[in-house]
């Protein structure tokens, strides 16, 4: 576990835009203009911040965050209700690229 990268994942349906996650871990989480979390670097947690990341997961009032060890896993780690898989659709032309 200590060698693998930890990744944070947001459950967008559970998330209510509370915002404490961004205060606790500003290195990884910022808030968009509507107050919802944006994960930097696809949610990868820098090595020294594992403890803060765990705290962010337990402290989220909506239990909308989960920490996964394996980046390719489908995130059943902490939250038994699961987290959204990253969208794998066709490449968006123009704007979203």
């Amino acid at each position: 576990m200590s060698q693998q990268t930890m990744r944070l994942r947001v459950n967008p349906i559970a998330c209510s835009g509370h915002g404490s996650c961004a205060e606790l871990l500003p290195e990884v989480i910022t808030l968009d203009e509507w107050g919802y979390p944006l994960l930097a670097g696809d949610g990868a947690v820098p090595v020294g911040l594992a403890r803060e990341a765990r705290r962010v997961v337990t402290d989220c009032p909506a239990l909308a965050l989960a920490l996964t060890a394996d980046p390719a896993s489908s995130a059943h780690a902490a939250d038994s209700e699961g987290i959204q898989k990253k969208h794998r659709g066709p490449v968006e032309p123009g704007l979203a690229r």
Binding site: S16, G17, H18, G19, S20, E23, L24, D59, P61
Partner: peptide, 17 residues
Amino acid sequence: VNRRGRLPGLPRFATTS
């Protein structure tokens, strides 16, 4: 916490804490 309010002068996570 449920209403996402904050105590004056304190960060948001303080309410939960």
